[in-house]
Design a protein around this nucleic acid. Structure first.
Length: 342
DNA sequence: AAGTTAGCCAACCGCACGGGT
DNA sequence: AACCCGTGCGGTTGGCTAACT
């Protein structure tokens, strides 16, 4: 025997919402709030709708500051980065894009962004098979959390990305489904080609996040820290230790990140513009990706996390919360995400 | 012009989780 | 500890529209 349905399916209206229904729901919630009980809400208003349907309509369409369509390049980059790191956690991704809903992002990813990525990838691969040479300067790595290091052992002072910490366990990601060889994997491989370089996880099982970077990052967050969803809280507390930035962000996002804090930020330390080039060019440019070979591979099937605090806090400037984005985040999260002034 | 296909997106479904009892 | 119930979430569906044949 399954659980009882949340409402009487026979007596609730389904399908598209009428303007009248929208008005009723919106005006009521604006005046009285949800009352903490979506199930009872439609009866109070006199709507013949399921409570869940009301909630969905409000969250995805009626609540203030909702934006639909016209995703910016920055948003594309953020979505891609987060998707590659945390998978289809649409609500988490949406929380980073004020005004966007998880449903919107999900639809956008499934209908456009994924195809955009794969389409380009395939085109480039075909190109590559036609004999394109190796591109040597594609050594940026949008995933590595570590700063570029100049090795004195090289006569040319070559820079390299230390193979650190590649797959540090992220508490709330340990249940991620290991992707089969499907689109996820294809995209991951693609992004790897863009420069994702991962160390051999098996050979370096106990990698730790560099302490100096942790402290640096945390100093920048002393104005405000955004704690993530409940089951993520523990992970957030360990952000500095376990998470690293993969934001293949477009310039605006990067700028926002760099604005965080007055001092040299984590992002500045770990991000090399060259490394961002890959994703952006992949998305928007005409970079010859397939001709690139970095010998990269994903160190493990488990996903790493891109949910770095700098991204979370990308709407903050000089420690001040930009009110709109802040409130929107709070509103959207409905308590699932808590902004905490420390 | 009519039929077919593909793309998009709002809405629904069902499961998991967490709080309350 | 077990159960109930509301909520949140991701996956899926169905309808509308545009593009194509």
């Amino acid at each position: 025997m399954g659980r009882a349905p949340c409402c009487d399916k026979a007596n609730v209206k389904r399908g598209p919402w009428s303007p009248e229904e929208d008005t009723k729901l919106k005006s009521y919630i604006e005046k009285h709030g949800t009352g903490g009980n979506w199930i009872a809400l439609p009866q109070k208003i006199g709507l013949k709708r399921c409570g869940k349907s009301c909630r969905l309509r409000w969250l995805n369409y009626l609540r203030p500051n909702i934006r639909h369509g016209c995703f910016s390049e920055e948003e594309d980059s953020i979505i891609c980065s987060l998707y590659l790191s945390i998978g289809s956690r649409w609500s988490v991704i949406a929380a980073q894009l004020p005004g966007r809903t998880d449903n919107d992002i999900k639809n956008y990813w499934n209908t456009r962004l994924k195809k955009k990525l794969l389409g380009r990838h395939r085109n480039k691969e075909q190109k590559g098979r036609r004999g394109a040479g190796m591109k040597q300067n594609m050594n940026y790595n949008i995933y590595s959390p570590t700063p570029m290091v100049t090795t004195p052992t090289s006569s040319t002072q070559q820079q390299y990305w230390p193979e650190l910490p590649v797959l540090a366990p992220v508490p709330f990601l340990d249940q991620l489904v290991i992707p089969s060889f499907n689109d996820h994997e294809a995209i991951r491989k693609l992004l790897t080609k863009l420069g994702g370089r991962f160390s051999d996880h098996e050979n370096q099982p106990n990698l730790q996040f560099p302490v100096d970077l942790i402290s640096s990052r945390q100093q920048n967050l002393d104005q405000l820290q955004v704690l993530s969803m409940p089951n993520v809280d523990d992970g957030v507390q360990q952000l500095g230790q376990t998470q690293y930035c993969i934001e293949g962000a477009a310039g605006g996002v990067l700028n926002n990140m760099m604005q965080l804090g007055g001092q040299s930020s984590y992002i500045e330390q770990v991000m090399n513009p060259q490394r961002l080039e890959g994703l952006d060019q992949f998305l928007y440019g005409d970079h010859d990706i397939a001709s690139t070979s970095t010998g990269s591979c994903w160190g493990s099937e488990t996903s790493s996390l891109a949910y770095h605090p700098s991204l979370v806090a990308s709407n903050y400037e000089d420690g001040q919360v930009q009110e709109c984005a802040f409130q929107d985040q709070l509103r959207y999260s409905e308590g699932q995400y808590r902004a905490v002034h420390l």
